[in-house]
Structures are given as structure tokens and as C-alpha cells.
Write a protein that binds this DNA or RNA. Structure first.
Lengths: 136, 136
DNA sequence: TATTAATCTATAAAAACTATAGGGTTAACA
DNA sequence: TGTTAACCCTATAGTTTTTATAGATTAATA
């Protein structure tokens, strides 16, 4: 299951990417337009800012805005920040590899074998999709 | 993240598929060999039996055994039974479709767009992988 | 037929994670 | 300097996942 955090984060990113100029948009505005709990969205936008996707401006006329071009934002990085590792098990993760403590031999593990394929398939999708591809 | 339920279920299936004949194997034996909490495994094997993957035999000399040939067990069905819908959001699910209540228009939803691709990629993997492919 | 070995059933507790809410702080701007 | 809106911290309700407990039921066998 995709977490609401990721879902909301993606929606917010596309919303900001769709803004004519890169004028700051207030949290409340995004929350209202996209039907998102404002407080929850607040924390999501914050992590997106901390991870270099968004900029922010305080005070009157402030808000959040996209920093990079939508075509330069790969889904790999978005998913990793919002949803966590792309691999479904740590033992097939590229960026967060960890050995399973219950599994004596990775080479003959059926879970490992299957999840390796799944990881590759997902990576293929995420690498070849940018934020620009998701805007209608 | 893959649930332990799915992980253990897959391991149990491969273990049973690796048995020379299709002699019943006791839960305790599977649990020990694969490092799985026995009672948890018990409930997993039960759902695998109820869904037509396994047969069981009670009493002395009893246990669980594979019903179908490993090459006839597609990962699509295994994953659906153990992990649930393959789609990460209900609005792109083939077998469990549901409209998002917060999303006014599926056609212009970025989450929908992305998760549709992901679903297809995963289906491709699961459809083309059988239990036989996971045995070393 | 008594015993044993195993599956079956139900429940509940513990742990982990998810989603949301409240309230105070800080920076920008008019 | 007052107002606005992002920032930050904490708490909590709710849900899901995983494990544990206790016993009932079934079938083989001696």
C-alpha cells in the first residue's frame, strides 16, 4: 500500500509544478485544492524542502515553490524521500542494503530472487518517470 | 515493505516445493528449517491451504504438502493471497478497484498515472514468475 | 480403544507504524 | 510593530502486523 504521505506529497508536487510562475503557494491553498489535512501536509512539505525539492518563504506572500524543473525530478528520488527504500526487502536494496538475520544464504533464497526482479522493474519505472510526465 | 507473512509464506512454499516426493511435512519442521515463528507460520499455511495451494493431513505422519506443480503456481496469485492487492492504490487495482474519495478526477491524477505504470511493471514480473523459477 | 501427533480455531497482547491535531516559535513584510 | 505564514515539537488515536496463549479436533497406530 502507498502511504498517504507519499500520495499527498506527489499531489502537492504536481500542484506546485502546475503553477504558471514559480510563485510561492501557501500550505492552506494546496491543502484545500487537493483535499489534504493541512497539518499533515505541513510536515510533508517540510521534508520535501529539507530534501531539496522545494523552497519556502515565510511571512506575507510566502509559501512553498518548486526549486527544480519538473523534468529534472526523477521519481526514484521522490519515492525514496517520501516512501522510503524502493526495494521491498533490505537484502535487495541498492541504497539501504542489509542482510536478513533469519536467512542463512541469500543466493538460494526465493524471496531474494523474486524481490530482486520486482526491484528492477520498479526502478525501471521510477527512473524513466519525472514529475513532468505526471502533469496533465 | 514486504510483510513477514508474505516472506514466510513464500519460504514455506519453496521449502515444500523442494521436497523430493510430495510427502506431508510438519509445521514444526518447516518453521525450524526456515527460522519462522511456528504459530505464525501455522496461520499462514492455513490460508495457503484455504486458497488451494496446499493440502494437509492430520494426525500422526501428517503435515502440509504442495497440491499443484511449482511451475503452475504464478506469483500473481501467491502475492494476492499473502500480501493483498498488487496495485499500490485501489484506483489502479484490477481485482479490487475502488475510487479515491479525495480525488475528483482520476484522469488527471498524478498518483494514478504513476501507480498505473508501477502496477503494470509488477504484474509483468509476477505473471512471468512461477514457484518453479524460485527454486535453486 | 487409548494414546499420540498433528492440524485447526479463537483470542489477545505486544509492537510498530500511520495519520492527524495542538500549540508555540520564528522570519518576512507592509 | 503588527500581521502573516512557515517552522518545530509533542502528543495521541487508530490501525496493522506480528507473536503468543490455550485449547479443540482429527486421524493414525499400537
Amino acid at each position: 500500500m502507498l502511504s498517504k504521505k507519499t500520495k499527498y506529497g506527489l499531489k502537492a508536487l504536481t500542484f506546485l509544478a502546475s503553477q504558471p510562475d514559480r510563485e510561492p503557494v501557501q500550505i492552506a491553498e494546496v491543502a484545500k485544492q487537493e483535499n489534504i489535512s493541512q497539518k499533515f501536509l505541513e510536515s510533508i512539505l517540510l521534508t520535501l524542502r529539507r530534501n531539496g525539492f522545494l523552497g519556502s518563504k515565510k511571512g506575507k506572500g510566502g509559501g512553498y515553490y518548486l526549486i527544480k524543473e519538473p523534468k529534472d525530478i526523477q521519481m526514484t528520488s521522490v519515492m525514496r524521500v517520501l516512501e522510503g527504500p524502493i526495494a521491498m526487502v533490505p537484502c535487495v536494496s541498492l541504497n539501504f542494503y542489509e542482510k536478513c538475520d533469519d536467512c542463512p544464504n541469500e543466493g538460494v533464497c526465493s524471496v531474494n530472487k523474486l524481490m530482486l526482479k520486482v526491484r528492477d522493474a520498479n526502478l525501471e519505472v521510477y527512473r524513466n518517470t519525472t514529475l513532468a510526465d505526471l502533469i496533465s
